[in-house]
């Protein structure tokens, strides 16, 4: 018990026994420490945990490099480089890749390919998609503007050009995907087809219009 505190505190109100006893009745001068030992099992468990931590830290430190991002990152770099040079072009592989690329289209055309009535045309069940692949490739390379009839409804909006964003393989992939997704059952598109049309229209910068595309189609 402190001496200095006792000296410094104001003298208690002698007359009010109730008030003086109140703080005593209310509480003990706790808390105090007990001194039970730490169970050995617990100490053992904690050492095991620290051991695991050390192992994990060593195994997944990525050599403390700034360019290693996930477990196994560096070890697979060489394998990745090889895979990159030989991306598959079979219809199945293209459709798988195309499904990923399609995420970029789903903002307007929606995941189910039905579009948004009045704003964004559907891709499901329309001849624009299941018809000649050249038309589709052209739309993707350079975009489309002006009025267009899709599945019996008229739309009038700007479809952006994707030729600058997507590679030949990615365009072929996403087209292969939408031509076979939902109720569509048209054949695959090959990267080579995209490549040749890209060359053919290399100096074009304007978007296509629906009527231009129709006349190109009938001329083919």
């Amino acid at each position: 018990m402190s001496d200095s505190l006792r000296e410094s505190q104001e003298s208690p109100d002698e007359g009010d026994i109730h008030e003086m006893h109140d703080p005593i009745a209310r509480e003990f001068e706790r808390p105090e420490d007990g001194y039970q030992p730490i169970p050995l099992t617990l100490i053992f468990l904690f050492f095991a945990l620290v051991g695991w931590g050390g192992w994990y830290l060593g195994a997944y430190s990525g050599d403390w490099r700034v360019d290693v991002f996930y477990p196994g990152d560096r070890a697979t770099a060489a394998a990745e480089a090889q895979k990159e040079s030989s991306g598959g072009t079979s219809p199945e592989e293209l459709a798988t890749l195309g499904k990923r690329v399609y995420a970029q289209c789903a903002a307007c055309h929606q995941q189910n390919g039905k579009g948004v009535a009045g704003n964004f045309p559907p891709l499901d069940g329309t001849e624009w998609v299941t018809g000649p692949p050249q038309t589709l490739i052209r739309i993707l390379l350079h975009g489309l503007e002006g009025p267009i009839q899709v599945a019996g409804n008229e739309y009038n909006a700007q479809m952006p050009a994707w030729g600058g964003q997507l590679s030949d393989r990615q365009i072929a992939a996403v087209l292969t995907y939408i031509r076979s997704a939902w109720s569509n059952q048209a054949g695959p598109v090959k990267p080579a087809q995209v490549e040749s049309l890209r060359k053919e229209s290399a100096d074009r910068s304007a978007s296509w219009t629906a009527s231009e595309l129709k006349s190109l189609e009938s001329g083919q």
């Binding site: 945990l49 620290v50 994990y56 997944y60 990525g62 490099r65 290693v68 991002f69 990152d73």
Partner: peptide, 26 residues
């Protein structure tokens, strides 16, 4: 975790989180 952060920074966070079992159980 999983983000554009060097692996070691993520790993340190994971290990420290697991080590928190010690003070918490205690």
């Amino acid at each position: 975790i999983g983000g554009p952060i060097p692996l070691w920074v993520q790993t340190v966070g994971i290990v420290a989180s697991m080590m928190m079992f010690i003070p918490v159980i205690t």
